[in-house]
Design a protein around this nucleic acid. Structure first.
Length: 393
DNA sequence: CCTCCACAGGAAGCGCAGGAGT
DNA sequence: ACTCCTGCGCTTCCTGTGGAGG
């Protein structure tokens, strides 16, 4: 019989687990001094009231892009000047309209609601910059902006119109290919300066882990070889620092549940499987309902077996786009929601694929003509479980 | 060869929310 | 109070595509 006494008497391995969370911003960013310095140098001209060059930052997820920029932003905004630096994530502000609205909300608070036209925002912006202001706008995940060409054009035009102030864009993206999709004109204005954040190497990850473990864990609770293993796994997978931190956090939790005093290689290996799913769960939780339903439909067919793909001798786990839509419509009805049209469902599929939750391939040679084959990116049972709760099924 | 299937994805346009101007 | 405007999510309609099957 378990008692609270028993649980509480177990010595905790953690001093402060929040240090391991991805939201924790460390005061020191190891291996990013050079990048931070370069950003600061570019932005410094704003403090002399000259418009800095636009900056584009590229690097894979978890290479410290956002962290570094926010770090600089703190320093910038604490420096007494007529300039303002602001951060927005384009996953939320994903159109020219929304970005402009968000920017202007800083200066005119009642602009929260919709209904104002773009020209109105533009006028306000020019007016505001006219007060000899230097405005720095950080656009994180800039590739999410649907009409980026227009946005860049609008902003550069605003720059031309004012004599004194100016607006500078710092774009952040982890999509390399996106550069080629841009209109050449907006490309050249967006890429006035470019900065690349390389993935962390195994050795660098070891340092980062050591730094955080020192604050987050009790002393000597993590075996050095476990740290090395976590760093090596991460470097091989992606070089994403957040992944490494999550890995060591989960390993710690597993060790603790098993009543161990130390985190070992074995715990890191066990954590590895959990972390992948955990990261997926985070993205899934933020999904709009319809995307969740589509994903649920895919997972549930995968779990219960496909009526068609099996008899067509298809590789396990691949589904037809058509049968997924049928299932999606069915589940929608159960939830008393009107299913969206096929056309829009296809957009949903694209979104889900973009987020890495599924993969799809055109069927090519196969039975029943032409279709898209869909495969879930994670174990179906786990996804079903996850979504059953969040959809109240 | 033609036609049908099962899709992809562009174009137009609709309803809604929430302004502005009158 | 009314009309008109805008952005956005979405539907409707359409054309295109490559293999299957007659």
């Amino acid at each position: 019989m378990t008692s609270f006494q028993e649980i509480l008497s177990k010595k905790s391995l953690f001093k402060d687990p929040s240090v391991l969370s991805p939201h924790y911003v460390p005061s020191e960013l190891p291996f990013r001094e050079a990048q931070i310095k370069e950003i600061m140098e570019i932005l410094s001209s704003a403090l002399k009231n000259q418009k800095p060059r636009n900056l584009f930052i590229y690097g894979k997820t978890g290479t410290g892009k956002t962290c570094s920029v926010k770090h600089v932003m703190d320093k910038f905004n604490n420096y007494d000047s007529n300039s303002v630096m602001m951060y927005l994530n384009c996953r939320i502000y994903n159109s020219r309209y929304r970005v402009l609205q968000k920017i202007m909300k800083q200066f005119v608070p009642e602009l929260d609601k919709s209904g104002f036209g773009l020209p109105f925002f533009y006028e306000k912006l020019v007016e505001e910059l006219g007060k000899s202001k230097q405005l720095i706008v950080v656009l994180d995940e800039i590739d999410m902006v649907k009409d980026l060409d227009e946005l860049v054009y609008t902003l550069t035009r605003a720059n031309d119109e004012v004599k004194v102030g100016g607006i500078t864009i710092i774009g952040i993206s982890n999509k390399l290919s996106f550069k080629n999709e841009l209109d050449p004109r907006s490309r050249s204005s967006l890429y006035e300066a470019e900065l690349i954040f390389p993935p962390y190497t195994s050795v660098q990850l070891q340092h980062i882990l050591l730094q955080r473990i020192g604050i987050g864990f009790e002393n000597n609770c993590v075996e050095p070889s476990a740290i090395n293993l976590a760093a090596a796994i991460t470097a091989q997978e992606c070089g994403d620092a957040r992944y490494a931190l999550k890995l060591i956090l989960k390993a710690g939790e597993i060790a603790q549940q098993n009543g161990r005093q130390q985190v070992t290689d074995e715990h890191v290996e066990l954590a590895r499987k959990k972390v992948e799913l955990d990261l997926a769960a985070e993205t899934i939780a933020l999904l709009p309902d319809n995307l969740k339903i589509v994903l649920y439909a895919i997972a549930s067919i995968t779990q219960n077996g496909s009526r068609y793909s099996r008899l067509d001798g298809l590789e396990e786990g691949f589904l037809f786009s058509g049968e997924v839509y049928e299932e999606y419509a069915k589940v929608s009805n159960i939830l008393h929601k009107k299913p969206r049209s096929v056309r829009w469902y296809k957009e949903y599929l694209n979104d889900l694929e973009m987020l890495g939750l599924l993969t799809s391939t055109p069927s090519g040679k196969g039975v029943r003509g032409h279709t898209t084959l869909i495969k879930l990116g994670y174990p179906a049972a786990d996804i079903v479980d996850l979504l059953k709760h969040s959809l109240h099924l």
